[in-house]
């Protein structure tokens, strides 16, 4: 059994710490408290609801990060299940 390979494949504590810290600071620096995120969520729901019927209970919004080649960048991640599309008045 390749024990060494098994150990090596685990992310190192140093990298875990660095990634957790980066994510934490994105929240801290942008003042994105859970309260702010909740307000953002409400606004997004209101905006989208004008056009689509969405499942509010299953939607999730969070700040995450994606890894590009150079560094990790913060992204606003939103997963919003659509139940149906409304007929928007005035649109052909």
């Amino acid at each position: 059994m390749d024990l060494l390979g098994l150990i090596k494949s685990q992310p190192q504590p140093r990298d875990i710490a660095r990634d957790r810290l980066k994510l934490l600071l994105i929240h801290d620096r942008s003042n994105c408290s859970p309260h702010v995120l909740e307000m953002l969520k409400t606004d997004i729901i209101n905006a989208i609801s004008n056009y689509m019927e969405i499942d509010e209970t299953d939607m999730e919004i969070q700040i995450a990060q994606t890894d590009t080649e150079e560094s990790s960048v913060p992204v606003l991640f939103a997963n919003i299940p659509i139940k149906g599309v409304r007929k928007v008045p005035g649109k052909v």
Partner: peptide
């Protein structure tokens, strides 16, 4: 610990 990858290095902290 830094060498083993168990602790953040100076460059990690200064980058952040």
């Amino acid at each position: 610990m830094v060498k083993r990858g168990d602790m953040m290095a100076l460059e990690d902290v200064t980058e952040i």
